[in-house]
Nucleic acid binder design. Structure first.
Length: 513
RNA sequence: GGCCCCUUCGUCUAGUGGUUAGGACGCAAGGUUUUCAUCCUUGAAACAGGAGUUCGAUUCUCCUAGGGGCUGCCA
């Protein structure tokens, strides 16, 4: 036998398919991230498709929010509503006309049927089954026989109802007794018996397809090769497999991602968690158009996108090495679906802060100055007199966020209060006299460099027979108002001789008074 | 309730049929530092439980427990 000819590998195409029902939360961002990483790793396409088939849940601004979030994170779709490829349109609402024929096709083939039951009748059926202690009350192979549909009604009646223009839905007809199996890229074989599936609505009475229908049709038409989505979709994957089979289409590879869980109690992290847990669940700040309520975002909280993305990537995936710091392009290189875990991961907000600290320290002083400037401007400080590069160099080691460097307020204005704890502990009876002497030493300095100040300071305390602890804290608090901070000598140098002396004199006066 | 998925330090995780079960965050101690932070060193901290397979199971199988998801004309 000749060897099997290996067909040309299809170009990898993945999609991120959020519904615009509000801001995208971090779980959604991670799903988008993994899709992007997988696509880029395999030289494929990352597609954004807006799943807005539920017109009642549409939220204004949500789509823009999604786009902006992806942009902030650094992974933008190769095709999407904003930059259509040849598979458009990329909003399902704009593809509406397309779906009906596929639903009809299924009806004709005997894989789907019309159903006319009202919502009340459906409720009633579920209640009845519940009362009868049926394990899973659902519209299925058993119950559909006692409902109003094209399987139970006469052909005439069905035609009459359809012709009347009255509401109807199209439901899939799940086969009675068969095992549906598929191989998930993350979980291996998943097997479900068809008797556990229900006759899901494929086509709604408002003329829109449901997610199940639209997602299969669009993934096929858009030539999606891999469906990478959250684990919450796992239970409906068999339904999707069945649909591919009924249409006679090749199913894409499925990969169901583990969920991101709340760090406290239990359950998956959800939009509703907002700021309740002490950290944002959204990439960007979101203002609810209805209530005006604001939910904080990582961007506005001062997180770097690379820190946010790095932290997200490591929630459920790891490279198998001990390296922790990966920027987006590093992630692309290292990523593989095989290394995605199966179990849900509790989100650790502290770890994200740590990532932020790492990335902050990695940035150049010049970059940090630029990032800090808007914050300084907001404070209304005159920053011209201060060497900001030096200031940032002093402050960055102790900062997690750019904004933390604002602790160095004393570079721009003399302290108005003095840290009480330091005063109580360090300001002794003889302190004014010591500071007075120190002041004279400083006044006598020609060279006000940090090195020179340090040298003279040390000589001074030695001569006086004092320890650092007896002088420096008081010195610091007079100049900066604080009991802690970076090198005093560098601070003085940065402030300049004149300003340093002025502050000490002012402080001495204040303390004596 | 039913169905499906999952289970290594507090958290994120690496790992192998025979390892001192490794790393990171966090925590604690010590060192450096005038101080805080940084940095360095050290430490405490895990294979859910029970059977089975095996010379040997954290690793393979089954059961139990626990956790999670789904159970809509929502996605």
């Amino acid at each position: 036998m000749p060897p099997k000819i290996k067909t040309m590998e299809r170009r990898v195409r993945v999609r991120f398919a959020p519904s615009p029902t509000g801001p995208l939360h971090m779980g959604g961002v991670r799903t988008a991230l993994y899709n992007y990483l997988f696509a880029k790793k395999n030289q494929g396409d990352f597609i954004l498709r807006i799943e807005d088939t539920d017109q009642t849940r549409y939220v204004k601004g949500a789509e823009d929010y999604i786009l902006e979030s992806l942009k902030w994170c650094g992974f933008q779709p190769d095709e999407g509503p904003e930059n259509p490829g040849k598979f458009g349109p990329y909003r399902q609402s704009e593809r509406k006309a397309l779906y009906k024929q596929y639903a009809d096709q299924l009806v004709e083939a005997g894989h789907a049927y019309y159903a006319f039951d009202t919502p009340e009748e459906l409720d009633e059926m579920r209640e009845r089954l519940k009362a009868a202690k049926v394990a899973s009350p659902q519209y299925n192979a058993i119950t559909r026989n006692s409902m109003k549909n094209s399987l139970t009604l006469s052909e005439d009646e069905v035609n009459r109802r359809l012709a009347s223009g009255g509401p109807y839905v199209i439901r899939i007809q799940i086969p009675r007794n068969e095992e549906i199996r598929f191989q998930d890229a993350i979980r291996g074989w998943v097997v479900v018996h068809s008797s556990n599936l229900d006759d899901k609505v494929l086509f709604k009475s408002d003329g829109m397809p449901t997610y199940h229908m639209a997602n299969i049709v669009d993934d096929h038409l858009m030539e999606i090769t891999h469906v990478i989505r959250g684990e919450e979709w796992l239970p409906s994957a068999p339904l999707h497999i069945l649909l591919y089979r009924f249409f006679g289409w090749e199913a894409p590879t499925f990969a169901h991602l583990p969920l991101i869980l709340k760090p406290d109690g239990n359950g998956k992290l959800s939009k509703r968690d907002g700021d309740r847990l002490g950290f944002p669940v959204f990439p960007l700040e979101w203002k609810d158009p209805e209530t005006g309520a604001i939910s904080s975002g990582y961007r506005e909280k001062g997180y770097f996108p690379e820190a946010f993305v790095n932290a997200l990537a490591f929630l459920g995936w790891n490279p198998g090495t001990e390296r922790e710091l990966f920027k987006l392009n590093d992630l692309v290189e290292a990523f593989s679906l095989e290394r995605v875990g199966k179990a849900g991961a509790k989100y650790d907000a502290d770890k994200t802060k740590w990532y932020n600290q790492q990335y902050l320290r990695e940035k150049s002083n010049e970059t940090l100055v630029e990032l800090l400037k808007p914050h300084l401007a907001a404070k209304g400080w005159n920053v011209d007199a201060v060497d900001l590069t030096e200031m940032v160099d002093l402050m960055k080691e102790r900062a997690v966020f750019v904004e933390d460097m604002l602790e160095g307020a004393y570079f721009f204005e003399a302290p108005s209060t003095y840290d009480e704890k330091t005063i109580n502990k360090k300001w002794k009876e003889n302190t004014p006299a010591i500071i007075e002497k120190l002041l004279q030493v400083l006044k006598g300095l020609k060279d006000f460099s940090a090195e020179e100040i340090e040298k003279e300071f040390k000589a001074f305390i030695e001569q006086e027979g004092l320890g650092f602890g007896a002088v420096l804290p008081s010195f610091r608090v007079l100049v900066t108002g604080l009991g802690m901070g970076p090198s005093m000598f560098r601070i003085c140098n940065l402030l300049g001789k004149e300003e340093t002396i002025r502050r000490i004199e002012a402080g001495l006066t204040k303390m004596n008074g």
